[in-house]
Design a protein around this nucleic acid. Structure first.
Lengths: 110, 110
DNA sequence: TTGGTTAAATGTATTATTGCGATTAATTCT
DNA sequence: AGAATTAATCGCAATAATACATTTAACCAA
């Protein structure tokens, strides 16, 4: 996306943006939902469920791993992915806090 | 980003991805935080606070408007932006529900 | 060793995103 | 009417993201 000027924002703002990226593509939402639903998933199962090529799924998994919200356990020749509870909880708290800063009664300029 | 295959995902998954986009860039996080904090913001104030050009801020505002999470009231020659309570609540519920599907006790493949 | 299986990595094409200068549009104020 | 103010839009350059075919790597089994 062109060059995001991360240096002019706070750590917190950059981290929230990064966590939000985990959910900002429907394929990643679907992947996370499947992993949660089944407790864990091997890559091949995800490829079967989603109508996406193996390379594409693998790339989304890589991005989710970069963010930290999933972790992969190598179980040759498979890799089993599961939620990283620590980061998942971080997401819960971050979004929860941010979304709760706005209270409905203090709405608007209308 | 290449062509996201929205048609192979559910409405819900696509909507969550879209809502997450509101938070997936630190500038937009900062903008939303400022609007919430001050109840409302005119574009010029945001440009002053953030070290970004007016055109850039305007574009982020446009994206946030597209998603629906903010709304702009024209108050010439200014525009006053504020949170759209309906969509904000939708985000609360969507993320809340999704993030609560995972319970810590049912963790992992480790 | 030789396959077979699975997933990561690589390379490529395409499209989206970011950021900004410059321009334009809309509306006040004088 | 003319000047000033404010924000949207346009156009551009640079970079990131999507998607996939193909190749590579890692491992097990026979």
């Amino acid at each position: 996306m062109g060059v995001t000027k991360t240096e002019i924002f706070t750590e917190q703002q950059n981290r929230i943006a990064d966590l939000a990226k985990a959910f900002s593509h429907p394929a990643r939402v679907a992947i996370l939902q499947l992993i949660v639903e089944r407790k864990a998933c091997i890559c091949g199962d995800l490829v079967e469920e989603l109508e996406l090529a193996q390379a594409t799924v693998s790339q989304h998994l890589k991005e989710l791993k970069r963010i930290g919200i999933i972790q992969g356990e190598i179980n040759p020749p498979r890799v089993c992915y599961c939620i990283n509870p620590v980061v998942w909880q971080e997401a819960q708290e971050s979004f929860g806090t941010l979304l709760n800063t706005f209270v409905l009664t203090t709405a608007c300029c209308n």
